[in-house]
Design a protein around this nucleic acid. Structure first.
Length: 861
DNA sequence: TAATGATTCCC
DNA sequence: CGGGAATCATT
């Protein structure tokens, strides 16, 4: 090793402690030194790396295992305690903007550690004398070649005043500094293409002369032959160089007579890539045109992206199962021409693996960069079934059957809707007869009531009569008692809130007329519950078949805001719990509930819900009843009613095919009441718009809805800092909107500013913040001193504290009369308060620790 | 040429 | 400072 003849201490130690095998290896290494010195860089495949490289499992190995081959195996357990090695305590950031020389005027950001306000830091282990740690800029050979690392042509500079100091940067370490070297305030200068060779040459020359000095013990200039050699290496270095990725090299030296003798192998940081380059820049989908589409694929989608390279980007669709395991993937198709500049891509969706899905399927889209395998954050996409409307083409009796054999009084025209009610097989009818008492619903009861209706056919009378008809809501479908609502709605006349949706055409009117006739006639036959069900089903399906929009009678009655037959039908459906019929969608995927909500028909809604209408059904735009009501300026009672339904699956937060929740729609349509009600009913205020990543707070800010912003801040847990896909937080947006310079934008910004401050206050301080705050406090306040010393006097722990502070000898000679004495003495000695605090923490003196924390950090908790 | 990279400039 | 854009250079 290099320390042979330099550091006899360690060598002797080695000899004493090493087993024979190891010694053999050590000796054979001497030949490797030659190898090392010639290549100016350690040969990683040589056995010496086994001895000298850092121990395994330290953080210095980047998690991505960027270049596994260059990470040396760690030393064996018996060697790691005695051989010097470098450990990287703080890796540099992964991304950093390399600046050109011309950009270096003024101060730009400096290279930090992985966390803010830290800096690349290394520690030298197993060495006890003063040493020098060097940091310089190296290449990150990603090729799987086992060649030595070469210096990088970029410059690692430290600013001192107006001039820049080039690498290598040196830090002296010793016992006092704990052999820790921190490298702050460094920047990376992107050397221009034309200067790369000269830069490399000078760096390599410098290394060469260091090496000569080390070998020959004196500093001299290079010989012709050596210059030639340098040029050769330079060529190599130039060939392998990647101008957008660098890493830091750390070396430890013992310096004698200005000659640097390495103490161990250099270590290399994880790669730092240039933030400005499209080759290494972050892949990101910033915005999507569409977030849902047909299973068959071939849907054209526009996405905005962060800078990409045309031929170095792919769009991948994939699906995860419940355990987050990828079970399907496919690539979207697009050509070079579909990549607009470097910021937008237009592509066609791939077909989903199963074209016959019955329900929506959620998948993900991501960008991928083949060159380095980098991926973007995924975005959600929904495949929608192509045949969402269940086929009504089920086998049924032909028209002949009902037109010929109907024994109901028929009009001039054969009724369209009339089905085969009278043809129900008698045998079946027998089967449907249930023993009385098996069901709480007495089949005869209803028909009697309806018969009464028959006799009093004026609408007014029907309406009046219906108020007496009892329809118990199955309470279990509500999460809260529905009685309050009922009490409210009882005072609302049936037509009070509702309005027609549209005018029915003649065919539709006929459907209703025929239905009415058929239905009432059927009731006369005093049917059992099962027969009634069959009849209704038959009539509903008939209606759906005949009407242009596949609408059931129920749809039609709601649409025309029918005042007499509708209430009757609703009660019947309710009474018989015809959930399936109630959930039948029309051609646009709308159920009766969708329409009832649009018509503000509160009583219909209530009945439908009591018939267990599904609040999660999405129409062809993906809208649930919640979405619809959120856009409507409807009576509050309606939304409240919907919110009362038990909702274990969070249907209130469902996203439509525009990627929006009901809350989004409420805010977008400035529907303050709906916004409030949804929020009060545990709708998630932080769900993002799947196209843009906007939360409702983003929307409220951009649309300048002061009242909504205010409400959200005061009454919900909106995240002011949550960024949308374009990396704007609501706060930042508010700030940008200040440019409009209107009173409202100013008010909104002010409001957010206040909550931002509150938010920051509540943030737990990061360990770094704590350190920083502590570093500013040098002495105890009187108050804190008294308090802490009282605690310590009581517990007697201050003896242990004194020990930890290195005052054990003073304690033994009874110099300190009390803990207050001790603390005052420590302050005089300039012991850091942070140190004292941490000692106390180790001693489980948490009360004292809290005292000090309060003094330094201000009020916490 | 048009697209992509490199460099400089600007707020 | 960090972000972006203008401008020059190369492919």
């Amino acid at each position: 090793m290099y320390q042979i003849g330099i550091n006899t201490n360690t060598m002797q130690m080695n000899n004493n402690l090493l087993d024979e095998d190891f010694q053999e290896e050590t000796i054979s290494d001497i030949s490797d030194i030659v190898n090392y010195t010639l290549t100016l860089s350690p040969s990683m495949d040589s056995p010496d790396s086994v001895i000298l490289s850092p121990p395994p499992s330290h953080a210095y190995v980047s998690e991505e295992a960027y270049q596994p081959l260059l990470v040396s195996p760690g030393p064996s357990p018996e060697t790691q305690d005695i051989t010097p090695y470098l450990e990287i305590l703080e890796q540099p950031t992964e991304k950093f903007r390399f600046r050109y020389k011309s950009e270096m005027a003024g101060t730009h950001g400096s290279l930090t550690g992985r966390k803010k306000r830290t800096y690349p830091t290394v520690q030298l282990h197993n060495y006890d004398k003063p040493a020098v740690i060097r940091c310089s800029l190296y290449q990150c050979n990603k090729k799987e070649t086992i060649q030595p690392r070469q210096p990088h042509a970029h410059r690692l500079v430290k600013k001192r005043g107006s001039d820049e100091i080039d690498d290598p940067h040196e830090v002296d370490v010793n016992i006092n500094s704990g052999f820790v070297a921190k490298f702050p305030n460094m920047g990376i200068i992107h050397t221009a293409k034309r200067n790369i060779l000269p830069e490399l040459e000078s760096k390599i020359k410098k290394l060469k002369s260091d090496e000569i000095a080390r070998n020959e013990g004196l500093i001299r200039s290079l010989s012709r032959r050596e210059e030639q050699e340098v040029r050769g290496i330079m060529g190599e270095a130039n060939k392998s160089i990647d101008l957008n990725i660098v890493c830091l090299q750390f070396e430890a030296f013992e310096v004698k007579n200005k000659i640097y003798y390495p103490l161990c192998d250099p270590v290399y940081s994880s790669p730092i890539s240039n933030l400005k380059s499209a080759l290494t820049g972050e892949l990101k989908i910033v915005r999507m045109d569409l977030v849902a589409g047909p299973v068959e694929g071939q849907q054209e989608i526009f996405i905005l992206v962060e800078k990409v390279k045309k031929r170095n980007v792919r769009i991948r669709f994939y699906e995860l199962d419940n355990e987050d395991i990828e079970i399907w993937n496919a690539e979207a198709k697009f050509s070079d021409l579909d990549v607009h500049h470097q910021y937008a891509i237009v592509f066609k969706t791939p077909a989903y693996r199963d074209l016959d899905i019955k329900n929506d399927v959620k998948v993900f889209i991501e960008l991928q960069r083949p060159s380095d395998g980098a991926r973007s954050e995924p975005r959600e996409y929904i495949y929608t079934p192509s045949n969402r409307i269940p086929s009504r083409k089920r086998p049924r009796l032909t028209s002949d059957d009902y037109s010929t054999s109907s024994n109901f009084p028929s009009n001039e025209q054969p009724p369209i809707v009339i089905s085969n009610l009278s043809n129900l097989p008698a045998a079946q009818e027998c089967d449907y007869q249930r023993p009385l008492g098996q069901d709480s619903t007495d089949p005869n009861e209803l028909s009697l009531e309806i018969q009464k209706c028959l006799n009093s056919l004026t609408p007014e009378e029907i309406t009046e009569y219906l108020t007496t008809l009892d329809t118990d809501a199955p309470q279990e479908i509500y999460q809260k008692s529905v009685t309050i609502m009922k009490a409210q709605s009882a005072f609302i006349p049936f037509s009070y809130t509702s309005h027609p949706l549209r005018n029915l055409d003649s065919e539709e009117t006929k459907i209703i007329t025929d239905f009415r006739e058929e239905f009432l006639a059927f009731v006369k036959t005093n049917p059992t519950k099962k027969r009634m069900s069959m009849m209704l089903k038959s009539l509903f399906e008939k209606s759906a078949d005949v009407s242009g929009n596949m609408e059931t009678v129920l749809h039609l009655l709601i649409s025309e805001n029918n005042q007499n037959l509708l209430p009757l039908l609703l009660k019947v459906l309710h009474k018989y719990q015809e959930t399936d019929l109630v959930n039948m969608p029309n051609i646009r995927g709308q159920t009766a509930l969708h329409l009832a909500v649009q018509c503000h028909n509160i009583l219909a809604i209530e009945h439908l819900l009591c018939t267990k209408a599904d609040i999660a059904v999405q129409d062809l735009e993906g809208n649930t009843a919640f979405h619809i009501i959120a856009m409507e300026n409807a009576p509050h009672a309606i939304l409240k009613l919907l919110c009362m339904v038990k909702d274990e699956h969070d249907h209130i937060n469902m996203v439509n095919y525009d990627g929006l929740t009901a809350l989004h729609l409420a805010v977008k349509s400035n529907n303050i009441e709906a916004t409030k009600i949804l929020c009060e009913n545990k709708a998630d205020v932080n769900v993002e718009d799947k196209k843009t990543g906007d939360t409702i707070l983003h929307v409220a800010v951009v649309d300048q809805r002061l009242e909504i912003v205010k409400f959200l801040l005061e009454n919900s847990n909106v995240n002011i800092t949550k960024e949308n896909y374009a990396q704007y937080s609501p706060f930042k947006l508010a700030n940008l909107l200040l440019r409009k310079n209107t009173p409202i934008t100013r008010q909104i910004y002010k409001l957010l500013e206040i909550y931002m401050a509150k938010f920051k206050e509540n943030q737990p301080l990061s360990p770094d913040d704590v350190k920083e705050k502590y570093s500013k406090v040098k002495i105890f306040t009187e108050e804190c001193l008294d308090e802490v010393s009282e605690i310590l006097d009581k517990s007697g722990i201050w003896y242990n504290l004194a020990e930890l502070l290195g005052y054990d000898h003073l304690v033994r000679s009874n110099i300190f009369a009390s803990s207050k004495n001790l603390l005052q003495f420590a302050m005089k000695e300039k012991k850091s308060i942070f140190k004292i605090r941490n000692f106390l923490e180790n001693l489980d003196e948490f009360d004292a620790v809290e005292c000090i924390d309060i003094m330094v950090l201000g009020k916490q908790k």
